[in-house]
Amino acid sequence: MAKQISIITFTGKLGNLIGYSRGGKHFLRSLPAKVRQTTATRRAARRFGIASKRGSLIRSAFSGLMDVRCDSGHVNRLTSALIPSAGGDTGSITAFRFNRHTGTDRFLTLSPKLSRNGILHIPPQTLPGFNGIHTLEIKVIAARIDFTTHQVVGTETAVLVVNAGESFKGAACDVDIPGKGTLVVVLQIKGLQNNMPSCNRKYLAADIIAVQPPQTLPVLHRQTYSKDPVFTPPSKEIEAPSPARTRFSFIQLE
């Protein structure tokens, strides 16, 4: 350890030297010739790298489709959620909030469920009322992500607007995007004031509500649904969409 006595001091790396301060005084030390990593540190670095890469792929799949602004720490939080399993168990990100200040459970007391055959069910329930919030915009965003090839295979979205503080009779949606990879479903809910989104972050939520890994075995007795995801009340049959339809669509109760 050497002390800096020059009029001009510095901190940080300069060539093979590192400047730093301690107790108001500046010192120098040389860079180590070789960084020794233990097996544990190498394993930790590898796990972090895998988690970081998968987290980046997940964010890129939804970044252009979500209308809710993420909090400043969502990148680190998503990576941290993937680190324990080295990114292998993507199910660990279920219930992840892109906006940590508000979750979709603030608006839906009964959580949506994704069945094995790719049908997302939103149970019937009474929606809570909020001061100044007249309607809720419910948006489902589904993405098929292949973590092996590091590609987003496909994405689809659907939007449904319902009245806040009233009875909701439920809905179902086929979100099974064709292709190989993991199916990740995000539910976004925004509180609307006179058909305009609230500026209050406590009325803006976007959560990962379901993660379905690639299925290696065929699902037997799958219920027949349209290939294009269609939201429909459970009491009505799903209508066949026109061939030109490429996005999710909704059928609401009268």
Rank of each mutant, 00 (worst) to 15 (best):
A164V: 01
S235L: 13
V35W: 12
I8N: 15
I18P: 12
D89W: 11
I189Q: 07
S249D: 13
F62K: 02
L57E: 08
P128C: 03
D105I: 02
D228F: 02
G87I: 01
F107R: 06
P32Y: 03
E137D: 10
T126P: 09
V161I: 14
K13S: 05
Q223V: 10
E239L: 08
Q215W: 12
I58H: 09
G23M: 03
G15E: 05
G181P: 11
A86I: 00
L78A: 02
G23L: 04
T135W: 10
P229Q: 07
I208M: 04
R144S: 05
G91F: 04
V161Y: 06
S56N: 13
S21G: 04
L192K: 07
T94G: 04
R116S: 14
L14T: 13
S92V: 07
K180A: 15
G118F: 12
T38I: 03
Y203V: 00
F168M: 02
T126R: 10
P234V: 02
I5K: 13
L120W: 05
D174H: 15
A205F: 11
S115L: 10
G181L: 01
S85N: 08
R47H: 14
S167Q: 15
L108W: 15
G49P: 11
Y225T: 13
D174S: 12
F10V: 00
S167A: 07
R77P: 04
K202G: 05
L160G: 03
F147L: 01
V161F: 06
D176L: 07
K139D: 11
R43T: 06
D176V: 01
R22Y: 09
D89Y: 11
A158D: 14
V153F: 09
G154I: 00
L253F: 10
A210V: 09
R77E: 06
L14F: 15
S72M: 10
S242V: 06
F96H: 02
S111T: 08
H150V: 10
D228A: 03
N16M: 01
E166V: 00
S52C: 06
Q212R: 14
L28V: 04
V230D: 10
D146P: 12
S80Q: 13
N163G: 12
T182M: 06
R22D: 08
H121I: 12
I145L: 00
G15T: 00
G87T: 01
R59F: 01
P229R: 03
G165H: 06
D174C: 09
P218Q: 08
E166I: 02
M196K: 12
R43G: 05
A33L: 05
H150L: 13
T135N: 15
D71K: 06
A86L: 01
V219M: 05
V153N: 12
G103N: 07
E166N: 00
G118W: 11
I83F: 04
Q252H: 12
I50E: 15
H134K: 09
N76L: 02
Y20K: 01
C70Q: 09
V219C: 04
R42K: 10
R42F: 09
G91R: 07
P32N: 04
S92Y: 14
V230I: 13
T79W: 02
N99C: 01
V184A: 02
L31G: 03
P124R: 01
D67E: 13
R59H: 02
R201E: 15
Y225C: 09
Q4F: 03
T109R: 14
A244I: 08
L127M: 07
Y225D: 12
P197D: 11
R100L: 03
Q151M: 13
K113H: 09
G132S: 15
A205M: 08
P123N: 00
N76T: 01
P213Y: 00
L253C: 12
